[in-house]
Each structure stands twice: as structure tokens, then as C-alpha cells.
Design a protein around this nucleic acid. Structure first.
Lengths: 398, 398
DNA sequence: TGACTTTTTTCAAGATATAGACTATGTATT
DNA sequence: AATACATAGTCTATATCTTGAAAAAAGTCA
């Protein structure tokens, strides 16, 4: 129960360095003067720390700005090519690997299709590893400047060096993906659930910006959520927090592919919705069929919205977020046509006080932001703990 | 999105002082030597900081302990009479005010009955204020040594100096309890939802000890929960997080007293359970009737357990806690007789991975721990920020 | 009494942030 | 062109902080 930490006087420096770098990253080009206000540090310290960071080439100058009859301000910014982050999206139908600079410009991309049901561990691992090699080669980035690799995968990811994964839809039961990948790449690894990486992408660059308490609801074939508590992804004791899709919304209700009954996913997951509407599809035709269904006026859609509203209301009652972001390809389709109704159903099923402070909005990054979000895991770590010694190379997984 | 903080070198001292005091508080009598291990601080710093704390009389020596043929260790402990905390429980039927020393020994107590439905704001405020005066007078504690007053109330409590309260069961809509109380007492105030204060009591002294991620489920006439994330009560954007009782467990289900339909509370709240069983009671006979019903083998009880299991499973899926504590008078009655079945129903409705890491246990403090928990709010603040200058007296509410 | 053990304190060294003086680099005015 | 003024950024002296190592304290054991 010993909550606060911190110890030596050196941690102070590390901490302030991180504060400053973070402020700089999210505020864009900023003068030293403004940074004092943004960070609360004294001008002297800002000068000090930025001096360090400039010497390390972590930040660079970015032009001047006039200042009403005085010495012009020198703008500073994070050096976008100080390091590079790789993001991997392991999805139902594909493995996608992308390489970004620190501005999150995509510099290279590599994609592998997975045949339906073809989720053998060794195949996926091989795709990831050769994807990493490919994007590094294509981009021409020297390997020493790769800060790390973030991987977004389905299912539950245990924290720790092994990064043990449990993913029912893939038939993965206790797969030590961290161990397997580390055998094939020297880069630091950050493995996390895909819904959580996508949630972080929306928080950093999408509809979640500016909020500290948010829930990103992801509705695709399956249903998941990413919970942001006080600006940080909430993981719980074993990183499986946010399994919204399998919360029960009806006792003894419809069978769910998880083996349970009455799960929310069995009512609002695209696969389940199409099944309920009696539409037979495979993974290739699923999205088109769902899009058509949404605009068809079918009572199944009304029912889906009813369940979705109740599900969102439950999230609001339990987490009291400022913002709910509805994402995932099916969620976006539903939201584009029916957001007003969804909000109304949420209001009906929610206590008024928490509902009144929560805004429900659509995701802005599209369904392909998993890899981007995975790469932000690398950047997050970089912003938190870049030491004076350049790029570190110890095997780390978080 | 600037997450980390901390600045000057003085914050370091404050932080380390808090770390040490906290370790000492929860570990009980401890030597300086052990404290180095517990806090990670060097022996020199421990000596330094404990010297300060001893000089301030915040901690005191507590005997010697032999040490295998060397200098004996001096045990240190928090001075239980350095300051005192007052806890207030505002319940449906009573207002209870208790005064504790820092060891949480109850030194004085004052209780006022509320007649059914008699929850007028001014009556409650008057009871609280005269209760405070009474316990201070009875205990003989000098007012200057009262560290503050914690108040646990029903409903949603907005953070801030006003401590605006929304409590449907009391008919309170936007009552600025903080403002009202501060007009009548000089002590620093900490106002929070009663379920949350009780949760903190279970975490500090009850069934939650030792866990960092936990949910305390409170089942009485109504239903609530307190969520502990990483050792801290999770409050969300406006302190209303944890409204478990009004999450929907059945679309279009039973009417709930909140005005909604299909709320969990409408199935497992004691009032609702008795209603479903066709038993007519008032608040005075409710508990006895419920106790009898639980052992009667009624199918209503089986159904209740089914819903309770599903509700707990939803908490586990969403929060991934290490521990679920079932408390509240009705929860304790159910748990004492049916814990095995409850666990089984939770397992049936939960993903296996998160279920396997969550233990479901009964609360250990009984239903009257709200005032104790409210007092821990005061102590928590004390442990976090006791400065060299003795007891502070600025009006503060958190 | 002296050797030994263990705990605690003292002391000097190294590191940090800050306030305030000082320097740098503009514009406006004479 | 010279001077005054305004704003941005750096430098210096100072007060704190934690720490490792040495010293002191307070016992046991032979």
C-alpha cells in the first residue's frame, strides 16, 4: 500500500526531462519561454534540460517567432528522426507492419494476408519478423535508430517478458509471443491487446485527444474496449481489463462464440448481428453485408442499437468517463447512421448525472489504427525514459 | 497529456517523508534498518527523515528488539495521538459520528436516528455538526489536534470545495454539503460516497488488504461498488465511477427505483429481492426478513445468486481485479450461506483467464465500516502530506 | 576487558532546481 | 546612427537533497 515513490535527486532530473519532452511532443513547436508555463519548471531549469536534450539531438530548433519588440523566441521540437518506431497489427485477416518516425509519418509498410482460420503461431511470427526486416530495409532507417516494436494482437496479453497470449478467436492458448519474437529480432518489444493499442491511437491523435478519462469502444466482428483512466490505459491486475464484449447483458441469452451466454458481443458484434438478421457471410463479404444491413431499416438494427446503448450506459455508469469513443469498423458504420439514436438509448439506460458529463463521439482514425497505436507504445516509453546514453538495446517487454 | 510531475528538490523530501510515514503506518512498529528495505531509501536518508519526524512528534519510539549479538534495533511507530480523525456515516436510518486516533481506535461516538424518509438537508447537517462537537467534547481531544472530518454519504459526490451531492434515495439534488458543513466547523473536510469510504476501510483493514486491484461490491437495500485501481479508489471524471447497481443486466427488465429498467439493483438489491419474493416489509424489518429468506430455499434466492454471479463476472471482465470483496449487509448474508454457488455462477459468466486470477471473498468489517472508512480519508491525506508545521487549518475539501 | 556484531549517525561529495543578475537580440524613437 | 526599451535565454551563487563510507553507539560473547 506504499503508493508514492521517487527517491534520489537524479530521479528528479529524469522526471523533469520526461515532463519537458512530453510537453514538447504533444504541444508541437514551442519556445523555452512557453515551456516554463507548460511544465511549471523555472526558466533556468528549462534552459538546462533543453540544453541536454539538444546536445543529445533528441530535440532540435525549429525556427524563430517574433515577439512584440524583443528578442525572438526560438522554437524547439522533438527531432522526428531521432528514432523510429515500428507498429504491428495482427488481425483476423492480415499481419500489417509499419514503420514511423517520431512524428508518426509512415515511412514504410509491409502486409501479409492470412487465409481464413490460418492463424498458426509460427506463420504469424514469421510474418511479423519478416515484416520488421522489410520495413527497416525499405525505409533505409539504420537499425540502431529503431526504438522498438509495438505489437497489437487479439485476446488477452499477460504483462511480462514472455507476453503470454490467450486469444480464443485465433486458437491461441498461452502463446509466449514475446519469447518467440525476441528470438528473431533485437528490437525492444511492447506487446499489447489490439483494442488497447487502437485506443491509445485515438487518445493521442484521434477523437480522444484532450480527455483524461475515456473509454474507446471497439465494435467489429467482435467487441472490445480500451479504458483510459487518468490519461493512462487501465490494465487491471493481469492486463485483461476492458473485456466489455463478454459482459452479460441478458441472463441466459444468446450463445456467444466465447462459449458463454448473453454476452454483449452476441448482440452487437457484427458477426452476431448478421447472424441474427439471417444473413450468411464469410469474412470477405462481412463488411459490405453489414453496411447494407445498417441502412436497411431492419428491426435487427434497432435491436442492436438498443443493446449498444445499454452497453455504453453500463460503461458510463461504471467508469464515469468524460468521453466515449465509438470505433471499430462496425461501430463506425452504426455510428455514422444512427449516432443520435445510440445516444438516446444510452441516456435511457444510464444515470443522469454521469451521462450528462460524458460525450459520445465517433472514432476519427478508422479501423486501421491498430499498428499506429502499437507504435505509440514505443514512443510512450521513449518519452518516459530517454536517458543521455543514446538508443538503448536491452531486451524489454511491457 | 503531460503525465509525470514533480519538480523541485524539496518535493523529493516531501515525497520521501510520505513514503516513509506510509510504510511505518501500514507495517506497524519497524526499525530504521527495516525501513531501508521497505522504502528503498538509504540508511542515511532514513535516519535523516525519521529524525525530522521524531522531532515533529509525528512518530515515536516503541521499544527495542534484540539483534543477534549486536546493537538492538529501536522500533519506530506513528504516534497514535499526534492527531485524530473524525468519521461520519450518513445512512438511510441514522447519522453516526465517530472519533478515532491514528491507530483507528474509536475514542468517542455519537449517533442520531433519522425517521423514515426524514432526510431533510438541514436536519442532516445539524446532526453532523452537533455530532462533531459531541465527539470532540466527549473524547477530550483538543480541537487543534483534529486532523479533519471524513464524511460518507449516499449518492454521487462531485469533487471540489462545494462537494455537490446528488442522492436520489435522499431526495437530494445538487446539495452543496461541503459549503454547508464548512460554515459550521473549522475542520478540513473530506466528503465521499459511502460505498467508496467503506471500500477504503476494507482495503486498509479488512478483506482487501494486500491487493492493489480490487472491487468491493456493496449489497444492501441498494447496490454499489468501490473500485480500487492500483491501490487507489477509482473515481472517474466526476467521482461517480462504480455505479454498479444501475448497470443493465436485462434489456427491458424489472423497474428499478432509479427510474430505469433492468438494473442489477432491481434483481439483487435486498429491497428488490424481498419484493420479488412477495414479502412486504419496512426498513425496520427488512434485514430480518432477508436473513430468513436467504435460508428458506426459495427459488427467488437462486435467481438472485444467478444475477449476482453475472454481475460479479461483469466486474471481473471489465476491471480484471485480483480480488472481489462482497460486502454490505445483504451481500454478507448471501455470501455466508451461498458463497460457493456465487463463485460458480460468476465463473459460468466470466472469461476463464480473468476469473482464474480473481478471488471472491467476503467483507470482514461488517456493514458499519462507513464511518471508519470516512476517517481513513483524513488519515490518507495526513500520510500524504504532513509538513513540518504541525496541524494545518486551511479549509480543504477533497 | 577486549573482540566482534549489528544498528544508527555523521560527514563529505556529488547532483539538482531556483532566484536573480546578466547577456543576447530584437523594435521603436530621437 | 544612437539610444531606450522589451523580451528571451543563460549564468552564477545558494540552499537542499540523497548517498556511500567512515565513525559511533550499544549490545553479546569469551
Amino acid at each position: 500500500m506504499v503508493r508514492p515513490e521517487r527517491r534520489t535527486v537524479r530521479d528528479l532530473r529524469r522526471g523533469n526531462r520526461a515532463v519537458l519532452l512530453r510537453a514538447l511532443y504533444f504541444a508541437g513547436p514551442t519556445s523555452r519561454h512557453e515551456l516554463t508555463a507548460l511544465t511549471g519548471l523555472s526558466a533556468a531549469t528549462v534552459s538546462n534540460v533543453t540544453g541536454d536534450l539538444l546536445a543529445d539531438n533528441v530535440i532540435v530548433e525549429a525556427g524563430l517567432v517574433d515577439s512584440d519588440g524583443g528578442r525572438p523566441r526560438v522554437l524547439l521540437r522533438v527531432n522526428p528522426t531521432y528514432g523510429f518506431a515500428i507498429g504491428v497489427d495482427v488481425g483476423e485477416t492480415h499481419v500489417r507492419v509499419e514503420l514511423f518516425d517520431l512524428d508518426m509519418n509512415e515511412l514504410a509498410k509491409s502486409e501479409f494476408a492470412l487465409r481464413p482460420g490460418g492463424h498458426e503461431v509460427d506463420v504469424v511470427v514469421r510474418h511479423i519478423l519478416s515484416g520488421i526486416d522489410a520495413v527497416v530495409a525499405d525505409s533505409g532507417v539504420p537499425p540502431s535508430k529503431v526504438l522498438g516494436v509495438g505489437v497489437g494482437v487479439p485476446g488477452i496479453v499477460e504483462r511480462g517478458p514472455e507476453a503470454m497470449i490467450h486469444a480464443q478467436t485465433f486458437g491461441w492458448d498461452s502463446v509466449p509471443l514475446g519469447t518467440l519474437l525476441r528470438a528473431g529480432t533485437p528490437f525492444p518489444l511492447h506487446i499489447d491487446n489490439g483494442a488497447k493499442t487502437m485506443g491509445q491511437a485515438e487518445m493521442w491523435f484521434g477523437a480522444g485527444r484532450g480527455s483524461r478519462h475515456a473509454v474507446i469502444a471497439l465494435i467489429g466482428s467482435g467487441v472490445g474496449a480500451s479504458i483510459i483512466a487518468d490519461g493512462v490505459t487501465y490494465r487491471g491486475a493481469n492486463s485483461s481489463a476492458g473485456e466489455w464484449g463478454h459482459t452479460k447483458i441478458a441472463i441466459g441469452g444468446r450463445d456467444c462464440r466465447c462459449g458463454g451466454r448473453g454476452c454483449l458481443e452476441a448482440y452487437i458484434g457484427a458477426e452476431a448481428v448478421l447472424e441474427r438478421a439471417g444473413i450468411d457471410v464469410d469474412t470477405s463479404t462481412e463488411q459490405a453485408a453489414f453496411a447494407e444491413l445498417v441502412t436497411s431499416g431492419s428491426p435487427v438494427v434497432d435491436e442492436t442499437v438498443e443493446f449498444l446503448g445499454a452497453g455504453l450506459a453500463n460503461l458510463i455508469n461504471l467508469f464515469n468517463p468524460e468521453r466515449i469513443v465509438v470505433g471499430g469498423w462496425a461501430g463506425l458504420l452504426l455510428g455514422q447512421h444512427l449516432l443520435t439514436t445510440i445516444k438516446q438509448k444510452a441516456a435511457e439506460n444510464c444515470l443522469t448525472q454521469p451521462y450528462s458529463t460524458a460525450s459520445i463521439v465517433l472514432g476519427r482514425l478508422g479501423p486501421d489504427a491498430v499498428a499506429l497505436g502499437a507504435a505509440t507504445l514505443v514512443v510512450d516509453e521513449f518519452l518516459l525514459s530517454t536517458t543521455s546514453s543514446s538508443v538503448s538495446r536491452e531486451p524489454a517487454v511491457s
